[in-house]
Simulated assay, not measured.
Amino acid sequence: MRSSVTDSITMRERFAAQSVIEELLHCQESRPPRSFLGRLFGASPLCPESEPWYRGAKGELAVASLLTGLPHEWTVFHALPVGSGGYGINHLVVGPGGVFTINTRHYSGQEVWVAGHTMLISGRGTNDIRNAELEASRVGAMLRERMPMLPPVQPVIALVGAKHVIVRARPRKVRVIEAGDLVSWLTNLVVVMNESELDLLVDILDEPSTWQAAPVVVHPEVWDKFAVLDHEVRSARFLRAGWTLAGMLALVGASVSVLPLLLQSMAGGLLP
């Protein structure tokens, strides 16, 4: 999604997963419409390149929904553009307990294993911990130019949908946590920032100029297009599940109808 809109907005107006959704819709531009039969049988409207972006968006939206449970003294920013590609920090949370960059990882149904600086997803290595450290370090260096006494920015990896999470040894700098435990963990931290410090920090974070020179805008049509696409994806999944169930029931029905004939045939073979 590319727009000619140039009016800057405050960063708190950016919605959760905005950057990821923009990339998702950009990928979908080359996807031809599904045929009638494709829609009827539940073919996915997503192209293969869009699948990771869609999962990422759903994960970020799930975490954003949980973060609405934070008390009023906490402030949450979403989809902060820090990289040249226009996407970067999933969520940045500021409150009495400090400053946190939250990287959402949607690992639905997968095993997550953590030991120090190593993180495996169903046995596959990832750079999640290293990337989270770099993200927090970059934000901390940027903010300390304005607030030299700012506490260290803590990187967090919030796991969405993981089947099992095993932490053998906690990473030294990164907190790896299941998304459902995030709000409780944040609100029980020791207070390290007072109200005046928080007000100043939020004002700094809210300025688009803090993040990048290019205009930071919200495209009103982006969310509407994503809502339509999300509905199509969920409807397609429902249809595929329905057809699978219908096939299983048909198979069972055929078995039930054939079984008496089979038993009769077997009985006939046993009679003298």
Rank of each mutant, 00 (worst) to 15 (best):
G123K: 07
D203G: 07
W211G: 03
A141L: 14
L150D: 09
G56S: 03
R105S: 05
V256A: 15
P171R: 07
H91T: 03
L150K: 10
T101V: 02
P71A: 02
Y107M: 01
G116A: 07
V216T: 15
P220E: 10
P220S: 08
S137L: 12
V167E: 05
W185V: 07
P155L: 06
N103P: 01
S122K: 02
S4P: 01
N131Y: 07
P272T: 04
G109A: 05
S235I: 06
L186N: 03
A62F: 15
H164L: 07
P215E: 01
G97F: 10
E73S: 11
L200K: 12
G86R: 04
L249E: 04
S50T: 00
G253N: 13
G125M: 06
S209E: 14
E221N: 11
N131L: 12
R105F: 03
H72A: 15
E111A: 11
V139C: 00
M149N: 15
A43V: 10
V112D: 00
R31D: 00
L229Q: 03
C27N: 13
A169P: 00
V76Y: 01
Q18D: 15
V256I: 15
M149F: 09
R2T: 12
D181N: 14
F36C: 04
P272F: 08
R168H: 14
E197P: 02
V228T: 11
D206C: 04
E221L: 11
L261V: 12
S50E: 03
L143F: 10
A241Q: 13
N194K: 07
M1N: 09
M149L: 12
G42P: 08
W211A: 03
V114F: 09
V176W: 07
S19D: 09
R55L: 11
P151F: 10
Y87V: 05
R170D: 12
G180M: 08
M119A: 10
L66K: 12
V93G: 02
I129R: 08
V190S: 14
P33G: 00
I102H: 02
V160I: 11
T10V: 12
G109H: 09
V99W: 00
L182M: 07
R12K: 13
P260D: 10
L200H: 10
V112R: 00
W74R: 04
